[in-house]
Deep mutational scan, measured.
Amino acid sequence: MSIQHFRVALIPFFAAFCLPVFAHPETLVKVKDAEDQLGARVGYIELDLNSGKILESFRPEERFPMMSTFKVLLCGAVLSRVDAGQEQLGRRIHYSQNDLVEYSPVTEKHLTDGMTVRELCSAAITMSDNTAANLLLTTIGGPKELTAFLHNMGDHVTRLDRWEPELNEAIPNDERDTTMPAAMATTLRKLLTGELLTLASRQQLIDWMEADKVAGPLLRSALPAGWFIADKSGAGERGSRGIIAALGPDGKPSRIVVIYTTGSQATMDERNRQIAEIGASLIKHW
């Protein structure tokens, strides 16, 4: 067993022997301040990774656009098919120029040779490549099948209805392509620590998230040296922004954090800054 596999296998073990965790309302004060600064709703939840206990939450059962955070769930569904012998990570998928959609920095470079399922998941999570996500959605049967996968996990809230990039439209009061912070946090925890996926697939999923290259201005910008984070960000229309993450000190994750916002007129930089400040408060009061 590799060191990384050992780390993920012992996530519940280490967490069980940690000192009790206590909620700190100071972080919620910052979440509410972010709402004021952005002029928009902000949803927040913080779960203990081992027990699933909610440590703090704000608007945990209000719907927010998922945006690209759905790509972690998508690759979880792909990995479940791999575990069941219905898919192979090494299978190569070929596609054409007509398949390319807006923001496809990886797939646009491989029109000639195609990409493997493993490479597509890596591109979808680490670079948020939209064509990679659409190609992977095709392998599982489309958005409705991802929703069905989530329902089978016990998540009857999260739903995907459309493809990239239309799913980022974020129309107010439109339930399409949305989740709730509580539902997303619980589902992410199941994917990373539950028995739904094999140990190898859980490790692969967290490795992809740990290698995320496009979430630097968010929670990662607030992390002290030595902290662990595996995350996936999302951005959408109407001032929408979000991030889902597993993080913790001492090089291992111990909490799940989900943050979503929508309806702001603020710039992307300002949305990023507010999420980073929430992260800084979380870490300060850990």
Rank of each mutant, 00 (worst) to 15 (best):
S2W: 09
Q4T: 10
R7L: 08
V8E: 10
L10H: 06
F14S: 08
F14P: 02
A15G: 15
L19E: 07
K30C: 15
K30A: 10
K32A: 14
D36Y: 12
Q37R: 14
L38G: 07
L38A: 07
G39S: 14
R41L: 09
R41A: 09
L47I: 14
L49M: 15
L49D: 02
S51Y: 08
E56I: 05
S57V: 10
S57Q: 13
F58C: 05
R59P: 00
S68D: 00
L73W: 03
L74T: 06
L79F: 04
S80W: 12
D83W: 02
D83C: 04
G85Q: 10
Q86G: 10
L89R: 03
Y95F: 13
S96C: 10
Q97F: 15
Q97E: 15
Q97W: 11
D99Q: 13
V106Y: 08
H110W: 08
H110T: 05
T116A: 07
L120D: 00
C121G: 05
I125G: 01
T131V: 05
L135M: 10
L136M: 07
L137S: 05
T139Q: 13
I140H: 04
K144Q: 14
E145I: 10
L146A: 06
L146E: 01
M153W: 15
R159H: 12
L160H: 06
R162S: 10
L167T: 08
P172V: 12
N173T: 14
R176F: 09
M180Q: 15
M184C: 06
A185V: 06
T186P: 08
T187K: 01
L188Y: 08
L188E: 01
T198R: 09
T198W: 04
S201L: 06
R202I: 07
R202T: 14
L205G: 00
I206H: 07
A211R: 14
D212P: 05
D212K: 04
V214E: 05
L219M: 09
S221E: 10
S221G: 10
A222F: 08
A225T: 15
F228Y: 14
F228G: 05
F228K: 08
D231Q: 05
K232A: 01
K232H: 00
G234I: 00
A235H: 02
A235R: 02
R238E: 08
A245W: 01
L247T: 06
L247D: 00
P249E: 08
D250F: 12
G251Q: 13
R255Q: 03
R255V: 06
R255M: 05
I259P: 00
I259E: 00
T261E: 06
T261Y: 06
T262W: 08
Q265H: 14
A266Y: 08
E270Y: 07
R271W: 03
A276N: 09
A276Y: 10
A276F: 12
E277F: 08
I278E: 00
G279Y: 03
G279A: 10
A280Y: 10
S281I: 13
I283S: 06
H285V: 09
W286I: 04
